[in-house]
């Protein structure tokens, strides 16, 4: 490129050192948060610690949905389907061999004789979710907007039906209970850190920018050499892999998985988190996920004493309406709040 104008040379506003400062800030944040988790684990009741783990996993799921729906502009409701697949795959893999024979007679012999620890089970669960998304996405991602939402909603029903009826392998409607409780708050925390770091780095890379370009204007993106079909599949599959791992973690946290555990209601809740936080805003999704998880847990005693079950859902829905009235693009729009962005990417225009 020849620069012939009388323009000054490119200003290199300390671009080499600044990303490093973002990296340092990220490490420090993780360390401080770890200390807080450790303190909580020592000082608080196991109920609160489990709640904290639940919050972490929910937040990670919301962020992973931000990647699919927020960055790329798809409107997928399919997260619970991938979570269910991930949870069942992992549960079958970690279930004690001694109980598999009686509870799951339909398993092939090699599977009945296998018992994995949690990490390989999670990886295989993620791979299973990703494969399903690849297969489904190839067919479904030609649909746009509401059609995609309906199709992915259908996927939840299909997966639930499968889990309900494939007795020999899933134990039908009763689900798999008494799973080994292999996941504690640290697994949940680690997963959250991983998902946030991954999504953040993706968002501020050329790949993530191209995904946002597809969201903003698909035709213009395509005429700029970007292949929208490929990026959509990629975002859908990555979201599904993370959802499947999250589902598997959740199942091993509460030690049970049934076909109904991850329902359409969860899809709604996750979408609400993304929408309230701002489509594409990682920080917004984190904040909204934390707020909604805490809110619905805090309202549980109220619901029980007054007999108003579903009160938290009502409040979440009202919050959604208020946010959409006052800030139609969510709390933070598609960006990150300035302070957070400067702190972690160390670049003003990033």
């Amino acid at each position: 490129m020849s620069t012939s104008h009388e323009t000054p040379p490119v200003k290199l506003d300390a671009r080499v050192t600044l990303p490093r400062s973002g990296f340092v800030a990220a490490i420090l944040t993780v360390l401080i948060a770890s200390a807080a988790v450790f303190a909580a684990q020592q000082g608080l009741s196991s109920y609160v610690v489990t709640l904290l783990a639940l919050l972490f996993i929910n937040a990670a799921l919301a962020v992973s949905l931000t990647l699919t729906n927020g960055l790329t502009g798809l409107f997928s409701l399919g997260h619970p389907a991938f979570m269910t697949v991930g949870a069942y795959v992992a549960a079958i893999l970690t279930f004690p061999v001694t109980r598999k024979g009686t509870m799951l007679p339909g398993l092939p012999e090699w599977l009945a004789a296998t018992q994995l620890s949690i990490l390989p089970a999670l990886l295989i669960a993620g791979a299973a979710g990703g494969l399903l998304a690849l297969f489904v996405g190839w067919a479904v991602l030609r649909l746009k907007g509401h059609y995609l939402a309906v199709a992915t909603l259908g996927l939840i029903i299909v997966v639930q039906g499968l889990a309900n009826n494939w007795d020999g392998i899933t134990r039908g409607g009763a689900g798999l209970s008494g799973l080994p409780r292999l996941v504690d708050v640290w697994w949940a925390f680690g997963f959250l850190v991983l998902v946030v770091a991954f999504t953040w780095r993706l968002k501020f890379s050329s790949l993530g920018r191209s995904m946002m370009a597809v969201r903003e204007n698909e035709l213009a993106a395509q005429c700029s050499g970007i292949n929208p079909a490929r990026l959509k599949i990629l975002a859908f599959v990555i979201g599904a892999v993370l959802a499947a791992v999250g589902g598997a973690l959740l199942a091993h946290l509460v030690s049970v998985i049934t076909p109904k555990t991850y329902s359409v209601l969860l899809a709604f809740n996750l979408v609400v988190m993304v929408v309230i936080g701002g489509s594409g805003s990682i920080f917004g999704a984190l904040l909204a996920a934390a707020a909604i998880t805490i809110l619905s847990e805090a309202l549980r005693p109220v619901e029980e004493s007054v007999g108003l079950y579903g009160l938290s859902q009502v409040i979440v829905a009202v919050c959604l309406i208020i946010v959409l009235r006052l800030r139609p693009s969510g709390l933070f729009g598609s960006g990150e709040p300035g302070l957070v962005r400067r702190l972690y990417s160390g670049r003003r225009d990033a």
Partner: peptide, 22 residues
């Protein structure tokens, strides 16, 4: 047809994605 929500330089970067990105 711009990518309205992205910054000016990010719009240009999107144009260079296929040629220069990792």
């Amino acid at each position: 047809r711009l990518f309205s929500d992205l910054s000016v330089v990010e719009n240009v970067m999107c144009g260079g994605h296929t040629r220069l990105a990792a």
